[in-house]
């Protein structure tokens, strides 16, 4: 599988490290922390997920279809968070 890094272009998945659901936000409220750490939507279909491009050290938010592994939009996690 090849993933497009916005900085480096399309690269082999060996250059990346996976880190799961990118729709979660670390909660400010303590009672929500367990859900944040453990509960997942785990969708069949499009999934927004974190991948670290270990070469340029950029955490990406990648949209990918869990049925087909087709790729959708890829964004830089840092920019997305600051923007939101």
């Amino acid at each position: 599988m090849r993933l497009p890094c916005p900085y480096c272009g399309e690269r082999d998945s060996r250059e990346f490290t996976y880190r799961g659901d990118a729709t979660l936000t670390r909660p400010a409220v303590e009672s929500e922390m367990a859900d944040y750490v453990y509960q997942r939507d785990n969708p069949l279909g499009w999934h927004k997920e974190y991948w670290l491009h270990t070469v340029c050290r950029t955490w990406l938010a990648v949209e990918r279809d869990t049925r087909t592994h087709a790729l959708g939009p890829v964004s830089i996690a840092r920019c997305e968070r600051v923007g939101s």
């Binding site: 490290t17 670290l52 968070r81």
Partner: peptide
């Protein structure tokens, strides 16, 4: 190292 980058870029990019 991956964790620190994550904590910065995802939790506190500001």
């Amino acid at each position: 190292m991956n964790h620190l980058d994550f904590c910065h870029q995802v939790h506190h990019p500001e």
